[in-house]
Design a protein around this nucleic acid. Structure first.
Length: 419
DNA sequence: TCTGGGGTCCTAGGACCC
DNA sequence: TCTGGGGTCCTAGGACCC
Protein backbone atom coordinates (compact mmCIF):
# COMPACT_ATOMS: atom_id res chain seq x y z
CA UNK A 1 0.00 0.00 0.00
CA UNK A 2 0.95 3.61 -0.53
CA UNK A 3 0.03 6.52 1.69
CA UNK A 4 -0.19 10.05 0.42
CA UNK A 5 0.04 12.72 3.09
CA UNK A 6 -0.93 16.21 2.06
CA UNK A 7 -0.95 19.33 4.23
CA UNK A 8 -4.26 21.15 4.14
CA UNK A 9 -4.07 24.65 2.62
CA UNK A 10 -0.38 24.52 3.46
CA UNK A 11 0.81 28.14 3.18
CA UNK A 12 -2.35 29.45 4.81
CA UNK A 13 -1.96 26.90 7.61
CA UNK A 14 1.68 27.96 8.18
CA UNK A 15 0.55 31.55 8.69
CA UNK A 16 -2.06 30.41 11.17
CA UNK A 17 0.30 28.35 13.31
CA UNK A 18 1.71 31.52 14.85
CA UNK A 19 -1.55 33.45 14.65
CA UNK A 20 -4.11 31.21 16.32
CA UNK A 21 -6.42 34.21 16.45
CA UNK A 22 -6.91 33.63 12.72
CA UNK A 23 -8.35 30.13 13.12
CA UNK A 24 -11.76 30.04 11.53
CA UNK A 25 -11.09 33.29 9.64
CA UNK A 26 -10.62 33.52 5.89
CA UNK A 27 -6.98 34.04 4.92
CA UNK A 28 -5.09 34.05 1.62
CA UNK A 29 -1.40 34.01 0.69
CA UNK A 30 -0.18 35.93 -2.35
CA UNK A 31 2.56 35.12 -4.86
CA UNK A 32 5.75 37.12 -5.17
CA UNK A 33 5.13 40.82 -5.77
CA UNK A 34 1.77 40.32 -4.04
CA UNK A 35 0.49 39.35 -7.47
CA UNK A 36 -2.10 36.61 -7.21
CA UNK A 37 -3.59 34.23 -4.70
CA UNK A 38 -1.58 31.02 -4.31
CA UNK A 39 -3.13 29.62 -1.13
CA UNK A 40 -6.49 29.94 0.59
CA UNK A 41 -7.94 28.75 3.86
CA UNK A 42 -11.24 26.86 3.62
CA UNK A 43 -13.08 29.99 4.73
CA UNK A 44 -11.49 31.96 1.88
CA UNK A 45 -12.45 29.26 -0.61
CA UNK A 46 -15.99 29.41 0.72
CA UNK A 47 -16.41 33.11 -0.06
CA UNK A 48 -15.49 32.42 -3.68
CA UNK A 49 -11.83 33.35 -4.09
CA UNK A 50 -10.40 31.18 -6.86
CA UNK A 51 -6.85 29.85 -7.04
CA UNK A 52 -4.65 32.29 -8.97
CA UNK A 53 -6.98 35.24 -8.48
CA UNK A 54 -5.16 38.53 -9.17
CA UNK A 55 -5.05 40.32 -5.81
CA UNK A 56 -6.00 43.75 -7.17
CA UNK A 57 -9.18 42.40 -8.72
CA UNK A 58 -10.30 40.85 -5.46
CA UNK A 59 -9.46 43.67 -3.08
CA UNK A 60 -13.13 44.48 -2.62
CA UNK A 61 -14.09 40.92 -1.84
CA UNK A 62 -11.20 40.70 0.65
CA UNK A 63 -12.53 43.73 2.51
CA UNK A 64 -16.12 42.60 2.33
CA UNK A 65 -15.37 39.31 4.05
CA UNK A 66 -12.52 40.45 6.28
CA UNK A 67 -10.04 38.23 4.46
CA UNK A 68 -6.55 38.46 6.01
CA UNK A 69 -3.95 38.78 3.28
CA UNK A 70 -0.32 37.62 3.50
CA UNK A 71 2.69 38.06 1.22
CA UNK A 72 4.46 34.80 0.48
CA UNK A 73 6.92 33.93 3.25
CA UNK A 74 8.90 31.06 1.74
CA UNK A 75 11.45 30.98 4.55
CA UNK A 76 8.62 30.08 6.92
CA UNK A 77 6.93 27.56 4.61
CA UNK A 78 10.18 25.78 3.78
CA UNK A 79 11.06 25.38 7.42
CA UNK A 80 7.59 24.20 8.42
CA UNK A 81 7.71 21.71 5.55
CA UNK A 82 10.97 20.25 6.89
CA UNK A 83 9.39 19.76 10.28
CA UNK A 84 6.38 17.96 8.86
CA UNK A 85 8.52 15.75 6.59
CA UNK A 86 10.84 14.83 9.46
CA UNK A 87 7.91 13.56 11.49
CA UNK A 88 6.42 11.66 8.55
CA UNK A 89 9.74 9.97 7.82
CA UNK A 90 9.31 8.04 11.06
CA UNK A 91 6.29 6.22 9.67
CA UNK A 92 7.99 4.30 6.87
CA UNK A 93 11.52 3.57 5.69
CA UNK A 94 10.43 4.38 2.12
CA UNK A 95 9.40 7.95 1.58
CA UNK A 96 9.20 10.28 -1.38
CA UNK A 97 8.87 13.98 -0.70
CA UNK A 98 6.68 14.89 -3.64
CA UNK A 99 6.36 18.62 -3.08
CA UNK A 100 6.67 21.20 -0.34
CA UNK A 101 3.43 19.96 1.25
CA UNK A 102 3.07 16.36 0.08
CA UNK A 103 4.80 13.05 0.66
CA UNK A 104 4.24 9.45 -0.38
CA UNK A 105 5.05 6.65 2.05
CA UNK A 106 5.38 3.09 0.85
CA UNK A 107 3.78 0.77 3.36
CA UNK A 108 5.46 -2.46 2.40
CA UNK A 109 5.29 -5.16 5.03
CA UNK A 110 2.56 -3.38 6.97
CA UNK A 111 0.05 -6.21 6.38
CA UNK A 112 -0.79 -6.62 10.02
CA UNK A 113 -1.05 -2.94 10.80
CA UNK A 114 -4.33 -1.21 11.38
CA UNK A 115 -3.73 1.38 8.70
CA UNK A 116 -6.70 3.52 9.66
CA UNK A 117 -5.28 3.92 13.15
CA UNK A 118 -1.79 4.42 11.71
CA UNK A 119 -3.01 7.28 9.51
CA UNK A 120 -4.90 8.88 12.36
CA UNK A 121 -1.81 8.72 14.52
CA UNK A 122 0.30 10.50 11.86
CA UNK A 123 -2.31 13.16 11.62
CA UNK A 124 -2.52 13.64 15.35
CA UNK A 125 1.23 13.82 15.78
CA UNK A 126 1.90 16.22 12.91
CA UNK A 127 -0.83 18.55 14.09
CA UNK A 128 0.29 18.42 17.69
CA UNK A 129 3.99 18.89 16.98
CA UNK A 130 3.80 21.46 14.16
CA UNK A 131 0.31 22.90 14.15
CA UNK A 132 -0.19 21.92 10.51
CA UNK A 133 -3.34 19.96 9.65
CA UNK A 134 -2.87 17.07 7.22
CA UNK A 135 -4.95 14.52 5.33
CA UNK A 136 -3.94 10.92 4.73
CA UNK A 137 -4.97 8.75 1.79
CA UNK A 138 -4.01 5.08 1.65
CA UNK A 139 -4.45 2.73 -1.32
CA UNK A 140 -2.70 0.01 -3.36
CA UNK A 141 -1.29 2.48 -5.92
CA UNK A 142 -0.01 6.04 -5.91
CA UNK A 143 -2.79 7.38 -8.10
CA UNK A 144 -5.42 5.74 -5.89
CA UNK A 145 -3.71 7.10 -2.76
CA UNK A 146 -4.15 10.54 -4.32
CA UNK A 147 -7.84 9.82 -4.77
CA UNK A 148 -8.17 8.53 -1.20
CA UNK A 149 -6.45 11.67 0.05
CA UNK A 150 -9.03 13.86 -1.67
CA UNK A 151 -11.80 12.00 0.06
CA UNK A 152 -10.10 12.36 3.44
CA UNK A 153 -9.68 16.08 2.84
CA UNK A 154 -13.21 16.59 1.63
CA UNK A 155 -14.84 14.65 4.50
CA UNK A 156 -12.57 15.20 7.51
CA UNK A 157 -15.28 14.43 10.07
CA UNK A 158 -16.50 11.13 8.63
CA UNK A 159 -12.99 9.90 7.77
CA UNK A 160 -11.08 11.40 10.70
CA UNK A 161 -8.75 12.74 8.02
CA UNK A 162 -7.67 9.27 6.89
CA UNK A 163 -9.27 7.32 4.08
CA UNK A 164 -8.28 3.90 2.82
CA UNK A 165 -9.19 2.31 -0.49
CA UNK A 166 -8.75 -1.38 0.22
CA UNK A 167 -11.55 -3.08 -1.66
CA UNK A 168 -12.83 -3.17 -5.22
CA UNK A 169 -16.12 -1.71 -4.04
CA UNK A 170 -14.44 1.30 -2.42
CA UNK A 171 -12.19 1.80 -5.44
CA UNK A 172 -15.10 1.98 -7.87
CA UNK A 173 -17.16 4.18 -5.60
CA UNK A 174 -14.24 6.59 -5.19
CA UNK A 175 -13.50 6.73 -8.92
CA UNK A 176 -17.13 7.43 -9.75
CA UNK A 177 -17.10 10.24 -7.21
CA UNK A 178 -13.98 11.95 -8.61
CA UNK A 179 -14.41 14.28 -11.58
CA UNK A 180 -12.04 13.50 -14.42
CA UNK A 181 -10.50 16.98 -14.31
CA UNK A 182 -9.54 16.37 -10.67
CA UNK A 183 -7.56 13.23 -11.43
CA UNK A 184 -3.85 13.52 -10.73
CA UNK A 185 -2.11 13.71 -14.11
CA UNK A 186 -5.13 14.84 -16.13
CA UNK A 187 -4.80 18.52 -16.76
CA UNK A 188 -6.89 21.11 -18.48
CA UNK A 189 -6.22 20.04 -22.07
CA UNK A 190 -7.01 16.39 -21.59
CA UNK A 191 -10.05 16.93 -19.40
CA UNK A 192 -11.57 19.21 -22.01
CA UNK A 193 -11.29 16.49 -24.63
CA UNK A 194 -12.42 13.75 -22.27
CA UNK A 195 -15.43 15.73 -21.11
CA UNK A 196 -16.47 16.33 -24.70
CA UNK A 197 -16.43 12.57 -25.25
CA UNK A 198 -18.66 12.00 -22.26
CA UNK A 199 -15.90 10.87 -19.93
CA UNK A 200 -17.00 12.67 -16.80
CA UNK A 201 -15.37 10.90 -13.88
CA UNK A 202 -12.27 8.87 -13.08
CA UNK A 203 -14.19 5.62 -13.45
CA UNK A 204 -15.23 6.49 -17.02
CA UNK A 205 -11.57 7.15 -17.75
CA UNK A 206 -10.56 3.68 -16.61
CA UNK A 207 -13.12 2.18 -19.02
CA UNK A 208 -11.44 3.66 -22.11
CA UNK A 209 -9.54 1.44 -24.54
CA UNK A 210 -5.81 1.09 -23.85
CA UNK A 211 -4.98 1.91 -27.48
CA UNK A 212 -6.93 5.14 -27.38
CA UNK A 213 -5.32 6.28 -24.13
CA UNK A 214 -1.86 5.35 -25.39
CA UNK A 215 -2.38 7.27 -28.61
CA UNK A 216 -4.00 10.37 -27.15
CA UNK A 217 -2.28 10.67 -23.79
CA UNK A 218 0.96 8.79 -24.42
CA UNK A 219 2.57 6.31 -22.09
CA UNK A 220 2.00 8.63 -19.14
CA UNK A 221 -1.75 8.43 -19.61
CA UNK A 222 -1.70 4.68 -19.94
CA UNK A 223 0.31 4.24 -16.75
CA UNK A 224 -2.18 6.44 -14.99
CA UNK A 225 -5.09 4.36 -16.23
CA UNK A 226 -3.53 1.14 -14.89
CA UNK A 227 -2.66 2.80 -11.60
CA UNK A 228 -6.28 3.87 -11.17
CA UNK A 229 -7.38 0.33 -11.92
CA UNK A 230 -5.30 -0.81 -8.99
CA UNK A 231 -2.40 -2.19 -11.04
CA UNK A 232 0.68 -0.41 -9.69
CA UNK A 233 2.77 1.20 -12.44
CA UNK A 234 4.12 4.15 -10.48
CA UNK A 235 6.69 3.57 -7.76
CA UNK A 236 8.34 5.95 -5.33
CA UNK A 237 10.81 8.17 -7.12
CA UNK A 238 14.27 8.58 -5.67
CA UNK A 239 15.16 12.17 -4.92
CA UNK A 240 17.48 13.17 -7.70
CA UNK A 241 19.57 16.16 -8.32
CA UNK A 242 17.80 18.78 -10.39
CA UNK A 243 18.16 18.80 -14.16
CA UNK A 244 17.26 22.46 -14.60
CA UNK A 245 17.59 25.36 -12.22
CA UNK A 246 15.82 28.65 -12.73
CA UNK A 247 15.71 32.06 -11.13
CA UNK A 248 13.09 34.30 -12.69
CA UNK A 249 11.12 37.28 -11.46
CA UNK A 250 8.44 39.70 -12.44
CA UNK A 251 9.34 43.29 -11.60
CA UNK A 252 7.31 45.65 -9.51
CA UNK A 253 7.78 48.29 -12.19
CA UNK A 254 8.65 48.09 -15.84
CA UNK A 255 12.30 48.43 -16.84
CA UNK A 256 13.31 50.25 -19.99
CA UNK A 257 17.07 50.63 -19.46
CA UNK A 258 19.61 48.01 -20.39
CA UNK A 259 21.53 48.59 -17.17
CA UNK A 260 18.55 47.87 -14.95
CA UNK A 261 17.93 44.60 -16.72
CA UNK A 262 21.63 43.70 -16.74
CA UNK A 263 21.77 44.04 -12.97
CA UNK A 264 18.76 41.72 -12.55
CA UNK A 265 20.21 39.15 -14.94
CA UNK A 266 23.52 39.13 -13.02
CA UNK A 267 21.68 38.58 -9.78
CA UNK A 268 19.62 35.74 -11.28
CA UNK A 269 22.76 34.14 -12.71
CA UNK A 270 24.53 34.39 -9.35
CA UNK A 271 21.51 32.81 -7.68
CA UNK A 272 21.50 29.93 -10.18
CA UNK A 273 25.23 29.47 -9.57
CA UNK A 274 24.63 29.24 -5.85
CA UNK A 275 21.91 26.62 -6.32
CA UNK A 276 24.22 24.68 -8.66
CA UNK A 277 26.98 24.65 -6.05
CA UNK A 278 24.56 23.36 -3.45
CA UNK A 279 23.95 20.21 -5.47
CA UNK A 280 27.55 19.95 -6.73
CA UNK A 281 26.68 20.55 -10.36
CA UNK A 282 28.17 22.66 -13.11
CA UNK A 283 26.09 23.74 -16.07
CA UNK A 284 27.03 23.51 -19.72
CA UNK A 285 24.31 25.73 -21.05
CA UNK A 286 22.34 28.73 -19.93
CA UNK A 287 19.20 30.47 -21.10
CA UNK A 288 18.26 34.11 -20.59
CA UNK A 289 14.82 35.45 -21.34
CA UNK A 290 13.16 38.85 -21.11
CA UNK A 291 9.65 39.95 -21.89
CA UNK A 292 7.24 42.81 -21.67
CA UNK A 293 3.95 42.70 -19.79
CA UNK A 294 1.63 40.40 -21.75
CA UNK A 295 -1.40 41.78 -19.89
CA UNK A 296 -0.85 45.24 -21.36
CA UNK A 297 -2.02 44.53 -24.87
CA UNK A 298 -1.96 48.22 -25.81
CA UNK A 299 1.81 48.45 -25.27
CA UNK A 300 4.33 47.20 -27.82
CA UNK A 301 5.20 43.60 -26.96
CA UNK A 302 8.56 41.91 -27.14
CA UNK A 303 9.63 38.54 -25.86
CA UNK A 304 12.82 36.62 -26.53
CA UNK A 305 15.03 34.00 -25.09
CA UNK A 306 18.47 32.83 -26.03
CA UNK A 307 20.37 29.68 -25.16
CA UNK A 308 24.11 29.96 -24.71
CA UNK A 309 26.31 26.88 -24.94
CA UNK A 310 29.14 27.45 -22.51
CA UNK A 311 32.74 26.79 -23.57
CA UNK A 312 33.25 24.81 -20.34
CA UNK A 313 31.05 23.62 -17.48
CA UNK A 314 30.94 26.02 -14.54
CA UNK A 315 29.11 26.99 -11.39
CA UNK A 316 31.06 30.16 -10.68
CA UNK A 317 28.83 33.15 -10.06
CA UNK A 318 31.35 35.37 -11.79
CA UNK A 319 31.50 33.29 -14.95
CA UNK A 320 27.79 32.68 -15.14
CA UNK A 321 27.03 36.37 -14.61
CA UNK A 322 29.44 37.17 -17.41
CA UNK A 323 27.89 34.67 -19.83
CA UNK A 324 24.36 35.74 -18.90
CA UNK A 325 25.23 39.36 -19.60
CA UNK A 326 26.61 38.35 -22.99
CA UNK A 327 23.36 36.57 -23.73
CA UNK A 328 21.29 39.54 -22.63
CA UNK A 329 23.21 41.84 -24.97
CA UNK A 330 22.11 39.65 -27.87
CA UNK A 331 18.40 39.89 -27.14
CA UNK A 332 17.94 43.28 -25.51
CA UNK A 333 16.16 45.88 -27.61
CA UNK A 334 15.51 49.45 -26.57
CA UNK A 335 12.05 50.96 -26.71
CA UNK A 336 10.25 48.32 -24.67
CA UNK A 337 9.00 48.22 -21.11
CA UNK A 338 10.26 44.96 -19.63
CA UNK A 339 8.24 43.30 -16.91
CA UNK A 340 9.88 39.96 -16.41
CA UNK A 341 13.22 38.25 -16.91
CA UNK A 342 15.01 35.13 -15.87
CA UNK A 343 18.01 32.86 -16.08
CA UNK A 344 17.70 29.09 -16.46
CA UNK A 345 20.75 26.82 -16.32
CA UNK A 346 20.68 23.36 -17.84
CA UNK A 347 22.76 20.41 -19.06
CA UNK A 348 24.62 19.63 -15.86
CA UNK A 349 27.77 17.69 -15.08
CA UNK A 350 28.68 16.78 -11.54
CA UNK A 351 31.73 18.63 -10.24
CA UNK A 352 33.54 15.41 -9.30
CA UNK A 353 33.46 14.10 -12.86
CA UNK A 354 34.40 17.26 -14.70
CA UNK A 355 36.01 16.84 -18.09
CA UNK A 356 38.78 19.21 -19.04
CA UNK A 357 38.29 20.91 -22.36
CA UNK A 358 41.07 21.30 -24.85
CA UNK A 359 41.29 25.03 -25.28
CA UNK A 360 39.33 27.06 -22.80
CA UNK A 361 38.86 26.01 -19.20
CA UNK A 362 37.21 27.41 -16.15
CA UNK A 363 39.25 29.56 -13.86
CA UNK A 364 40.31 27.22 -11.06
CA UNK A 365 40.76 30.14 -8.70
CA UNK A 366 37.01 30.59 -8.65
CA UNK A 367 36.52 27.33 -6.78
CA UNK A 368 37.97 28.40 -3.41
CA UNK A 369 36.57 31.87 -3.98
CA UNK A 370 33.01 30.57 -4.35
CA UNK A 371 33.47 28.33 -1.33
CA UNK A 372 34.49 31.34 0.70
CA UNK A 373 31.55 33.38 -0.54
CA UNK A 374 29.07 30.60 0.23
CA UNK A 375 30.53 30.19 3.70
CA UNK A 376 30.33 33.90 4.48
CA UNK A 377 26.80 34.17 3.16
CA UNK A 378 25.73 31.23 5.29
CA UNK A 379 27.33 32.79 8.35
CA UNK A 380 26.23 36.37 7.92
CA UNK A 381 23.03 36.05 6.00
CA UNK A 382 22.04 35.78 2.39
CA UNK A 383 23.67 38.08 -0.11
CA UNK A 384 26.20 39.63 2.25
CA UNK A 385 28.85 39.08 -0.40
CA UNK A 386 27.73 39.97 -3.89
CA UNK A 387 29.22 40.70 -7.28
CA UNK A 388 29.84 44.34 -8.09
CA UNK A 389 27.55 43.89 -11.07
CA UNK A 390 24.70 43.09 -8.69
CA UNK A 391 22.41 45.39 -6.83
CA UNK A 392 24.96 46.75 -4.34
CA UNK A 393 22.81 49.60 -3.09
CA UNK A 394 19.81 47.36 -2.69
CA UNK A 395 17.60 49.40 -4.96
CA UNK A 396 15.61 46.44 -6.18
CA UNK A 397 12.61 45.57 -4.11
CA UNK A 398 9.79 43.12 -4.44
CA UNK A 399 6.32 44.21 -3.45
CA UNK A 400 5.75 42.46 -0.12
CA UNK A 401 3.41 44.56 1.88
CA UNK A 402 1.91 41.88 4.09
CA UNK A 403 4.94 39.81 5.00
CA UNK A 404 4.66 37.89 8.25
CA UNK A 405 7.68 37.43 10.56
CA UNK A 406 10.14 34.59 9.93
CA UNK A 407 9.04 32.97 13.14
CA UNK A 408 11.16 29.85 12.82
CA UNK A 409 14.24 30.94 10.86
CA UNK A 410 15.17 34.38 12.20
CA UNK A 411 16.24 34.89 15.79
CA UNK A 412 14.76 38.39 15.91
CA UNK A 413 11.35 37.09 14.82
CA UNK A 414 10.89 34.43 17.47
CA UNK A 415 7.68 35.03 19.35
CA UNK A 416 7.65 35.85 23.04
CA UNK A 417 5.16 34.12 25.26
CA UNK A 418 4.02 35.80 28.46
CA UNK A 419 3.03 33.32 31.13
C1' DT B 1 -1.32 50.77 -11.06
C1' DC B 2 -1.69 45.80 -10.12
C1' DT B 3 -1.71 39.33 -13.14
C1' DG B 4 4.08 33.90 -9.56
C1' DG B 5 7.86 30.78 -9.68
C1' DG B 6 9.58 26.68 -9.79
C1' DG B 7 9.93 21.91 -11.81
C1' DT B 8 9.15 17.04 -14.61
C1' DC B 9 8.52 13.82 -18.59
C1' DC B 10 7.33 12.53 -23.39
C1' DT B 11 7.13 12.91 -28.44
C1' DA B 12 7.95 14.19 -33.15
C1' DG B 13 10.95 15.65 -36.34
C1' DG B 14 15.34 17.07 -38.02
C1' DA B 15 20.22 16.37 -38.42
C1' DC B 16 23.51 13.40 -38.35
C1' DC B 17 26.23 8.65 -38.50
C1' DC B 18 27.67 4.18 -41.19
C1' DT C 1 11.47 6.43 -64.13
C1' DC C 2 14.05 4.71 -60.44
C1' DT C 3 16.90 6.56 -54.83
C1' DG C 4 18.24 1.42 -48.44
C1' DG C 5 18.20 0.28 -43.89
C1' DG C 6 19.65 0.70 -39.67
C1' DG C 7 20.77 3.67 -35.93
C1' DT C 8 21.72 8.00 -32.35
C1' DC C 9 21.34 12.56 -30.57
C1' DC C 10 19.28 16.95 -30.00
C1' DT C 11 15.62 20.30 -29.68
C1' DA C 12 11.21 22.51 -29.44
C1' DG C 13 6.90 22.16 -27.91
C1' DG C 14 3.28 20.25 -25.29
C1' DA C 15 1.41 18.16 -21.45
C1' DC C 16 1.51 17.82 -16.63
C1' DC C 17 2.66 18.82 -11.31
C1' DC C 18 2.93 21.87 -6.89
Amino acid sequence: MFALIDCNNFYASCERVFRPDLNGKPIVVLSNNDGCVIARSNEAKAVGIPMGAPAFEYEKLFQQHGVRVFSANFALYGDMSNRVMTILSNYSPDMEIYSIDEAFLKLKGFDFFNLQAYGEEMRMKVTKWTGIPISVGIAPTKALAKVANRIAKKYPKQTKGTYIIDSEEKRIKALKWLKVEDVWGIGRQHSKRLNAMGVKNAFDFTQLEDEWVRKQMAIVGLRLKYDLQGIPTLDLEATQIKKNIATTRSFEKNYTEYNQLAERICTFAASCAEKLRKQNSCCNSLMVFIHTNGHRKELPQYSRNIVLKLPFPTNSSIELAKFATQALRHIFKTGYAYKKAGVIVQDFTQTDTLQQTLFENRDERHIPLMQAIDKLNTLFGQQKIRLASQDIKRVWKMKQEKLSPRYTTNLNDIITIHL
